[in-house]
Each structure stands twice: as C-alpha cells, then as structure tokens.
C-alpha cells in the first residue's frame, strides 16, 4: 500500500532513528559549509596564480587581514570562551533532547521471539545493508577491516603536498571525490537505506509504503555461472573417472575466476585513468612510489566492488560471481 504517511512517521519518530534524521540535515549542511570555504579558497588560489607579484605580498588566507594585527591571540580568553560556549550549547541540546525523548526500551530479551526486522545499531546499518550484496564474511569482517585499514593508510598514500591546512577543491579533486564517495554514498546513504527503506525480512519498502509482514519475495537471483550455463558437462570429459561427479563444482569454481580477473583489470584501469585525468593529477601520480600506487589500486578496486555488486544485483539479479565449495563472492 502506498501513501502511508503513518508508516513514515513511525519510522522517523523511533527514538533511536532520531540521530539518522539529524544526520540527514547535519551531513549536507557541513558538506555545503566546507564547499563554500573550499570554493572561496580556490578563487584566491586562482587569483594568486595569475598574479605572482600579489602572491609574494598576500597573506594567503581567505580571512580578513590588516597590517598591524597580531598574528596570534591568547587562548585565554579567546579560545576558552568558545570551548565553554560549545560545552554549554551541547549540554542544553542534550538536556532538551533527554527531557523530550525517552531512550527506547523494548520487552525483556527473548531468544525465542525474533524481532522482525532485527536491526543492528544505526551506525552499523551500512554493514548490515552490505549483507544483501555480500556474504557475511565479506560484509561483516573483510569490509570493516578494509575500511579501517583504508582510512589509516590515507596519509601515507596521498602524495599530494597541496591543501594542507585549508579547505580546497581545485588542489585535491581526486582525494575529495574519493572520500565523498566513500563517506556519503557507501556509508551514510547505506545507513539511511538500512534505516528508512529496509522493513520486515530486510525487504525494500519505499517511503510511504506500508511494512507488510506477510510480503514474500521470490528468490529470482541467480549466480553468474547459471546465467552463462556452466554445468561442467564438457569438463567432465577431461577429468578422471573419480572426479567426474564433482565436475559441475569444479567447473563453476574455475569459471568464476575469469569475470573476477576481468573486473580487477577493468577497475584498476579505470582508477588509473582517473588518477591521470589532468596534468596536475599526472604530476602527483609521478610522485607516488610503486608501493603507494599498488596500495591505492588494491583498496580502490575493493571499494569499487561494492557499488559494482549492487548494480549487478539490481540490474541483472546476480547473486554470486564466483562460487566455490568454501566461499562465494
């Protein structure tokens, strides 16, 4: 049933969903806030680049500056008062929030009564949403590990010395797009989908669609080898008698390697092209060591696999690319 605004209200007004509603406003606001300053800096950079004489005398910040002003200010009181004010404002927000909205408390824990949908805490819903597209060992273990490693590796693979200590877009296009893609699309939007879209049985319910607990979804997803029609019949001719029975399994396991390798090559080449898009990015690329390039490639190929898998699922209803007896991807 569509047009069910009560359902929307029920989801949005869940006390634990309030942070995500807040996130929906806070994240776009701060993206805009950062962009505004980045573009202001970029205009200054463009001005200084065309006017070398000005670059020698300008104080090189977007903030106002007059000769004779002190370069530094005392922490007491100029910083302390801001921190004090911030603490007071946060306390007031917390107080009002805590008085008006109660922390949720459901029935006592009951292992025999499954919650439907059973959702992880909101900040892990991105990982839970990933479970739709990947097996738990990838979505729950490999991907989180890669996110942590990938984040920690950033300062050691970013060979671009510009943009240290000021907002800019021009000087760091690749880094900013990569981070925005990861943070906004693969993390925040996945959380939003997990919160507002996923209903009973982790099925997709559009906003204003009623959560139907009796809805059934027929499994129409197929593995890539099924679509291509790999049944191991011709492999059986090559195998010895003892292995003939398992020829479909072996054929599938061998077949899956090819699309995977194809993906890695294509994705790596695409990343290579993006890394060398402009004269400036080519200059930065040249500064990178082999180790840095390989690290960036490995991490970005793995990161791209998530949107690619989502598209394969949504467009072609593909479940697995590579099926082996031990794991499937």
């Amino acid at each position: 049933m569509w047009g069910d605004w009560h359902q929307v209200w029920e989801i949005v007004s869940q006390p634990d969903n309030v942070p995500i509603v807040a996130l929906l406003f806070l994240v776009p606001f701060y993206v805009w806030y950062a962009c505004r300053q980045a573009f202001a800096t970029d205009r200054l950079i463009a001005q200084l680049e065309t006017d070398p004489q000005l670059a020698k005398t300008h104080h090189r910040k977007v903030f106002p500056w007059k000769a004779g002003w002190d370069r530094e200010v005392h922490v007491w009181p100029y910083l302390m008062r801001i921190e004090f004010l911030a603490a007071i404002i946060v306390t007031i927000i917390l107080m009002v929030w805590s008085i008006t909205l109660n922390a949720p408390l459901e029935e006592p824990a009951n292992p025999n009564l499954t919650m439907n949908p059973a959702k992880a805490p909101w900040y892990f819903l991105g990982l839970q949403e990933m479970l739709v597209y990947f097996d738990p060992w990838i979505a729950g273990v490999v991907m989180p590990t890669l996110i942590i490693i990938g984040l920690m590796v950033i300062p050691y693979v970013d060979a671009n010395p510009l943009g240290n200590g000021y907002y800019t877009y021009r000087q760091r296009r690749f880094a900013i797009w990569t981070f925005l893609f990861g943070f906004l699309f693969l993390w925040v939007i996945m959380i939003v989908i997990g919160t507002f879209i996923r209903g009973p049985g982790w099925m997709w319910f559009w906003p204003t669609q009623t959560w139907d607990h009796n809805r059934l979804e027929f499994a129409v997803n197929r593995n890539l080898d099924q679509i291509v029609g790999i049944d191991g019949s011709w492999l059986a001719h090559l195998l010895p008698q003892t292995l003939k029975a398992s020829s479909p399994i072996i054929a599938r396991a061998i077949f899956g390697i090819f699309p995977l390798v194809l993906y890695v090559i294509l994705a790596a080449y695409l990343i290579h092209l993006i890394c060398n898009l402009t004269a400036f990015s080519r200059k930065i690329y040249k500064r990178m060591t082999l180790l840095q390039i390989v690290t960036v490639q490995v991490l970005l190929v793995l990161m791209l696999s998530l949107p690619v898998k989502i598209l394969l699922r949504l467009l072609f209803r593909i479940k697995y690319i590579w099926v082996t007896p031990w794991f499937s991807i």
Partner: peptide, 25 residues
C-alpha cells in the same frame, strides 16, 4: 531488552563468518 539482544545477535553473528576463525567462515 529485545532491541539490544537482537542488535547484538545480528552483530556478533557476523563474527561466525570470520575467515579462518569463525565456524561458518
């Protein structure tokens, strides 16, 4: 409560699937 119990159940069930170290991984 039910909320915490099932959230942690969902969360830790993923640990089952840890490669090498989980019984379903």
């Amino acid at each position: 409560d039910q909320l915490g119990f099932w959230a942690v159940t969902v969360g830790t069930n993923m640990a089952r699937a840890t490669p090498l170290l989980g019984h379903e991984g």
